[in-house]
Simulated assay, not measured.
Amino acid sequence: MVKRIMSDFAAVADFVVVYVAEVHPTDGWAMSKNADIRQHRSLEERLAAAEMLALHDIPCPILVDTMDNAAVRAYAAMPDRLYIVLDGVCVYQGRPGPGGYHPEEVRDWLQKFSG
């Protein structure tokens, strides 16, 4: 659904993904169908994991959080969260995922904005 929103609103908004600490590392709280990604111990490992994400045809730039998790701390973005930033101001902050992850709210906001 997020890829579709990115496509539908490409003329209205710039999209980015910020890759943060791995939520389900194989050496931590792993899930059975996850990719084989260990918890990052260096920026190089985090960058390599983000490159694996890029292989899933993500239609926008992928930014990578620092090893001190500055983006997670600033935006409470763990495990996932959606934001809309307009002119440097956060105008939409979704609830933390997975339960609060609602891409349709982003679609609704962008439709009203571009209306």
Rank of each mutant, 00 (worst) to 15 (best):
D14M: 05
C90A: 12
T26E: 14
A54R: 15
G97D: 03
G99P: 00
D57Y: 15
V20P: 01
H40F: 14
L63I: 03
N34T: 09
D36G: 03
V89F: 15
R73C: 00
A50I: 12
N69F: 15
Y101D: 02
R4T: 12
H40P: 01
S114E: 04
I37W: 14
Q111T: 14
C60S: 10
T26V: 15
A54H: 11
S32Q: 02
A48E: 14
V72N: 02
Y101F: 13
K3F: 13
V18H: 05
V91D: 00
P25D: 14
G88Q: 12
A13V: 04
W29D: 06
L43H: 08
R73A: 03
F15E: 04
A74L: 11
V89E: 15
L47N: 07
R73H: 06
A54G: 10
A70H: 13
I5W: 13
W29N: 10
M78D: 11
A30Q: 06
F9S: 01
E104R: 01
K3L: 04
D8R: 11
A49K: 04
M6E: 10
A35H: 07
A49C: 04
Q111W: 08
R46Y: 02
I37Q: 04
V64G: 00
W109E: 02
E44Q: 09
R38W: 06
S114C: 08
R41V: 11
M6L: 09
A50Y: 11
A48L: 14
V2L: 15
Q39G: 05
E45Y: 10
R4N: 06
A76P: 00
D65C: 02
G28V: 04
K33T: 03
H102M: 07
P61S: 10
V16E: 09
A74D: 13
K112M: 13
D27E: 07
Y101C: 00
D57N: 14
A30W: 08
R81D: 02
K112S: 09
A11N: 10
F113G: 00
D68M: 08
M6G: 01
Y19N: 07
A35N: 05
A77I: 06
H56P: 04
D27A: 10
V17R: 09
L82Y: 03
M6S: 02
D68N: 14
A50H: 08
L55Q: 12
H24E: 00
A48D: 09
I58S: 05
A30T: 03
E51C: 09
Y19D: 10
M1D: 09
H40V: 14
R38T: 02
V64S: 01
E22W: 08
R73T: 01
M67S: 01
E45A: 14
A49N: 06
H24Y: 03
P79A: 09
V85C: 07
E51V: 15
P96L: 12
Y83L: 15
D65R: 02
Y19W: 10
L55H: 06
M78G: 01
M6Q: 06
V85H: 04
D14L: 07
R38A: 04
C90V: 15
L82C: 01
S7V: 11
R41I: 11
V17T: 06
R73D: 02
P96M: 12
V64E: 00
E45L: 11
R73L: 06
A77Y: 03
P59M: 12
V106G: 02
V20W: 11
A74C: 12
P59Y: 12
P79E: 08
A54D: 09
Y83A: 01
G88I: 13
P59G: 07
I62A: 04
